[in-house]
C-alpha cells in the first residue's frame, strides 16, 4: 500500500505541473462515512478515495479504501469453538466483525444541469474477520490474542479476498467548485473470502453500501 501511495504521489507532482500549464489534469480527495447493509443489521463505514481527474475531468483514477471497523460496530456474534475447545470455560465464542477494503478506482464522470455525478468502480483486496472483544482480549496465558483466535477458530478467524464494487455518487452543486458535499450508493461483491464464522463468505458479499462525503479537488472548468 505504501508503494502504491508513493507512486501516486509522484504522479501528483507531475500532474500538478501539467495542471497548472494546461488545466487538463486535476485532482480530488474525498473522505467519506457510510453504512453497509448486512444480513443482520447495518455496519458503519469510514473511508476515502483520492487520485487524479483526467481527460478533461471526465475520468477519475486513484485509490479507494474503506472499512467497517469493529470498534465502530459493537454488534457481536456467537459460534461454537472448533474441535470442542473452550475459552475461559466456555465452548461458545463471542466475536465482533471487522473489515477493510483497499482498491484501485476508476470513475467516469458526467453532469446533469448543475449536478456532477461519477460512477466509482473499485477493485482490490478485502481483509476481514472476527475477533475477541473486551475482557476476552486478555488471554488466560498472556499470549497474543490472535494466537487464541487462530486456535479456537481453526486458523480461519480472518481472511483475505478480492472485491469489486460499483456505484454512483452525486455531488451537490456548490458555489465553491473546490468543495462539494454529496452522497453515494454502492454495490459490493466479494470473491474467495471465507472464515470459520462464515464459511459461505456471504457476510460482506452482494451488499449495498451508502456513503456521505465531502469532495475536495481542482475545479471542473477545463
Amino acid at each position: 500500500m505504501k508503494y502504491i501511495f508513493i507512486i501516486l504521489a509522484s504522479i501528483f507532482f507531475s500532474a500538478s505541473n501539467t495542471y497548472s500549464q494546461s488545466n487538463k489534469i486535476g485532482w480530488f480527495i474525498t473522505p467519506e462515512i457510510g453504512v453497509m447493509i448486512l444480513e443482520n443489521g447495518v455496519s458503519k463505514t469510514v473511508g476515502a478515495s483520492l487520485g487524479l481527474k483526467v481527460w478533461k475531468n471526465r475520468l477519475k483514477i486513484g485509490i479507494y479504501t474503506y472499512g467497517c471497523p469493529g470498534p465502530l460496530n459493537p454488534q457481536t456474534y456467537t459460534i461454537e469453538a472448533a474441535n470442542g475447545q473452550s475459552y475461559k470455560g466456555s465452548t461458545t465464542l463471542t466475536v465482533r466483525a471487522d473489515q477493510l477494503s483497499f482498491g484501485l478506482l476508476l470513475a467516469p464522470t458526467f453532469k446533469i444541469k448543475k449536478w456532477n455525478f461519477d460512477i466509482p468502480i473499485n477493485i482490490g483486496t478485502m481483509g476481514a474477520g472476527f475477533y475477541f472483544t473486551g475482557d476476552d482480549r486478555v488471554t488466560p496465558d498472556g499470549d497474543r490474542v490472535s494466537v487464541w483466535e487462530n486456535k479456537l477458530m481453526d486458523s480461519k478467524d480472518a481472511g483475505f479476498g478480492s472485491y469489486l464494487e460499483a456505484g454512483i455518487r452525486a455531488f451537490i452543486p456548490s458555489n465553491n467548485e473546490n468543495i462539494q458535499f454529496g452522497a453515494g450508493l454502492h454495490f459490493t461483491t466479494v470473491k474467495d473470502w471465507s472464515t470459520y464464522y462464515d464459511p459461505s463468505g456471504e457476510f460482506y458479499n452482494n451488499k449495498l453500501r451508502f456513503s456521505l462525503f465531502v469532495n475536495f479537488g481542482s475545479r471542473n472548468d477545463s
Binding site: V46, G47, T65, Y66, G67, C68, P69, G70, P71, L72, D98, L100, G127, G129, Y131, R144, V145, S146, E149, D157, A158
Partner: peptide, 15 residues
Amino acid sequence: NMGSSWGASGDSQKF
C-alpha cells in the same frame, strides 16, 4: 482524525 486500522495479525488497533 479517525480511520480504520489493521496489523499485527489483528492484535493491534482496528480503529
